[in-house]
């Protein structure tokens, strides 16, 4: 299963994604430079974290016009799985592949620490290896992760089971102390209407080996591997 990891100028989690895709069996990752206009024959695409184009103007605003993004749009439109992590989530929102926007954290601080997130749905290519309600411990590292969307969009996300992860306390509860950045409805990750594009602020690629402190992110990669295998069968 071939996976493209897109490198923008300023990406800094592209190697983490690449490494995670090596650690979890079944993937053959390769880097694709943002200036390329072709993805090649790949089965999935990762938009990694970092500060593409220095986050100038708005995080992801300039990256979305990188030449490769046209190919990513086409790949997503054809049903190909696309994973945007952190800055990758911001790029997906700016490009319109996902609704809403990511604002400055309400604390005004760059938050870099582990958080707990709850799996809200198993019905995506990215979460089938988890249980609904399962609480994961996964790191975040962002200054602009405060998910915002208008009330209609939020109702749509809720109604269509498109909120994939929510920030929770260590015991899986919403409320006091659970939300690190002010995100609406404690949203940490969402999928598009056809469920093949996911954006999330936490970093599953940094939680795939016990030496990293947590292996809770592995499930996302295992889910994707399972999904691609079943599609190929």
């Amino acid at each position: 299963m071939r996976v493209a990891v897109i490198t923008f100028p300023g990406s800094n989690c592209d190697h983490d994604c690449y490494k995670a895709l090596k650690v979890v069996p079944g993937f053959v990752p390769s880097f694709v430079w943002h200036g390329s206009s072709e993805l090649g024959a790949v089965d999935a695409v990762f938009l990694p974290g970092g500060f593409a184009h220095g986050d100038y103007l708005r995080a992801g605003a300039i990256a979305r016009f990188s030449p490769i993004m046209e190919a990513v749009q086409a790949f997503a439109a054809s049903g190909g799985p696309v994973v945007g992590i952190c800055n990758g989530f911001q790029v997906l929102c700016e490009s319109g592949l996902l609704p809403g926007a990511l604002l400055r954290n309400d604390t005004l601080r760059f938050r870099s620490h582990d958080v707990h997130i709850r799996v809200e749905t198993e019905a995506t290519p990215f979460t089938s290896a988890y249980r609904k309600g399962q609480v994961l411990r996964i790191p975040i590292a962002h200054g602009e992760g405060n998910y915002h969307a208008d009330p209609e969009t939020l109702a749509e996300l809720e109604g269509e089971d498109r909120i994939v992860f929510r920030y929770v306390t260590s015991t899986g509860q919403l409320g006091e102390g659970s939300n690190p950045n002010g995100s609406a409805h404690n949203i940490a990750g969402i999928v598009n209407a056809s469920r093949n594009v996911i954006g999330m602020m936490p970093h599953p690629e940094r939680a795939v080996e016990s030496v990293l402190g947590s292996t809770d992110g592995r499930g996302l990669f295992e889910s994707l591997s399972r999904h691609l295998a079943s599609r190929a069968a």
Binding site: R58, I62, C93, H148
Partner: peptide, 8 residues
């Protein structure tokens, strides 16, 4: 197209 994000 670029300078402003209509969502925010």
């Amino acid at each position: 197209k670029l300078l402003a994000n209509p969502v925010t």
